[in-house]
Structures are given as structure tokens and as C-alpha cells.
Amino acid sequence: MPRDPLLTAGPGRHHPFLMLCIRRSLAGIAATCAVSLLVFVGTDLLPGDAADVILTRSASSGGGTPEQLAALRAELGLDVPWPQRYLGWIGGLLQGDLGSSLVSGRSVTDVIGSRLGNTLVLAGTATVLLVPVAVGLGLWSGIRQGRPGDRVVSGVAVAAQALPEFVAATLLIAVFALIAGLLPAVSLVPPGTSPLARPEILVLPVLSLLSVMAGQSIRMVRARTSEVVRADFVRVARLHGIPERRVVWRYVVPNALGPALQLLAGSISWLVGGIVVVEQVFAYPGISHELVQAIISRDVPVVQALAFAMAVCTLAIYTLADLLVVALVPKLRTGG
């Protein structure tokens, strides 16, 4: 074992980390393909296709004759078998063609293009704040497990985690907008301007997202941290007389951080659902209005495009977190 060429430094050394990066990225791509299939199948294959939807919509009286239906199907290319349609859809995606709305006929890129930026601003702000809050408070309360500070943080986290976003947002509006009158209850952004120009409208939406996501991520980081704190090597380090501060920074934090980040990725995937709700509550001009309308009117191409984009973001975050963990944990990094 000691003379394993993988472990000793030298010119002939392999790169287990590089290999892992490649393998995880390939896995991510495979998952993306699988997800695209799931999204396509889920939205397109269940009873009732786009032609039904359009005809019911246009001719409110009766829904069209079977001949009209067949004609429309042919026009929309729905008469070809689904694998062929799936490949066509994927081909379009690869060329940047997201398809066009069944309702308005506009291209999906058009529909969401201007609003995507607003959503990204909201999501980005929430994520940037979430990571330090979750990691910091999670580590802090995990280390002082059972003491008053931890009890307060864990108690609040347990409560906040349980709240659905629309309830948290409603309660926050009641407190900050209705009672205190400090912040706007709705977050209107005039077309053509950036929400960053009026940061006060971002406060409540971001707070709503954070309250829920931070709750669960703090708990996960804390659970992992308190596991490490109880580990034998921490106890032994103390028995060697290593100062407490050093025990925390050199023994607890490095071992808790990696897995904690992986857990955090799970929280961020919750953000996708949360952001739709929060945008609705605050009438924030992001993509969610279009998405919800598209779902209700069964505007398949729009939902497909948006769902796929969201899924890809989530998978990318997971893959990134996976790689970060591998980079941070020596045992994984060295392929041991």
C-alpha cells in the first residue's frame, strides 16, 4: 500500500481530481439529457396535446371539428411520432431556438427575454446572502451545540424552515409593510429599469426567500457540524491540549465544510420553486408570471423551455457543489 504510485508524488503521478471532474461533468450531462426527456414526456405525452389546447382556446364554441384538429396537428408537426418530435425539440434547443408560445405565437425567447434578468437578480441576491448566513450560523450553532445561542438559532431555523414561501412572504408584508410601513408591499419595476436601481423593493422578496431557505440550510450545516464536533479526532485533539480555537478552525471546520456545501446545493434547488411564489406575491416582474400563466393555459412550449432551463440550472449547481466537495475533502480528492 505505501508504494502505491497513485499516492506518492512524482512525475508519473495521475490526476485523480481531474479524472473526477471529468466523470462528474459527464454524469451531469447525462442527467441533463434524462431531464430533458422527462420534461418533454411530462408536458407533451399526457392526454390532450397542443392542438386541443389551441382549438379550445380559439373556438370557445365547441372546440373545433376533427378535421380542423387534424389539420392543426399537421401544421404544428404533432402528427409525427414523439421520439422524432423530441429530437426536433432538442435540436432547436441546441441552436438556441426555444420554440414559440401557442397562445400568443411569440417566440419564447421574446416572452421571457426581458424578464429573465430580473429573476436572476433576485435569485443571485438570495444565493449570495444565503451561503454565508447558512454556513456561518450553521457552523456557529453546531459548535456550541446545546448552549443558549444554539437553541435560539436552531429554534428559529426549525420554525422558519417549515413556513411555505407564500405564507412567509404574506406575514412579512403584514409586519413590514402594513404595520411598520417601512417597505413597499409590492415590488413593481418599471419596464426598462433594473430592480437594482431601487434596492428597497428587493428587501422583502429576498427576506422571504432567505427565511425559508436559510432555515433548512442552517439546520443541515448544523447537523453535520455537530456530528464532527462529537467525532473521536476532535475529542483526542482536545486531550492533546490543542487550544479550543485551533480545534474549531483546524479540526471541525475543514471536516464540516465539504459535506455542508453539498447539502446547501439541495437548498438552492428549492429556490427554483420559492422564487416563482415570491415573484407572484410581490408582483415582481420576473419570469414566474409567464410561467404560471403558461402552466394554467397549458402553453406547452413555454413551460418546456422554462422548466428545462430551471432544471439545467439546478443540475449545474449540484455538479458544482459535488466538485467543490471533492476539492475540499482530501479522501475524495486523492481518490482514496
Binding site: 442527467a31 434524462a34 431531464v35 422527462l38 420534461v39 411530462g42 408536458t43 407533451d44 405525452l45 399526457l46 392526454p47 390532450g48 434547488s269 428549492w270 429556490l271 427554483v272 420553486g273 420559492g274 416563482v276 410561467l291 403558461a294 402552466i295 394554467i296 397549458r298 402553453d299 406547452v300 413551460v303 422554462l306 422548466a307 430551471m310 432544471a311 439546478t314 443540475l315 449540484y318
Partner: peptide, 24 residues
């Protein structure tokens, strides 16, 4: 394996896709 992919999807997306495919 298929479940692992599903696990990576945000729950809201599952809802969105199903609601589009088969109505509310």
C-alpha cells in the same frame, strides 16, 4: 438511477410539468 435524476429536480418543476401535461 431514474430516481436520482428526479431527486435533483426541484419539487416545483415536477408540479409545473405535470400541471401542464394533464391540467389543474
Amino acid at each position: 438511477r431514474p430516481l436520482d435524476v428526479l431527486l435533483a429536480l426541484p419539487p416545483f418543476l415536477v408540479l409545473a410539468v405535470l400541471a401542464t401535461g394533464s391540467g389543474r
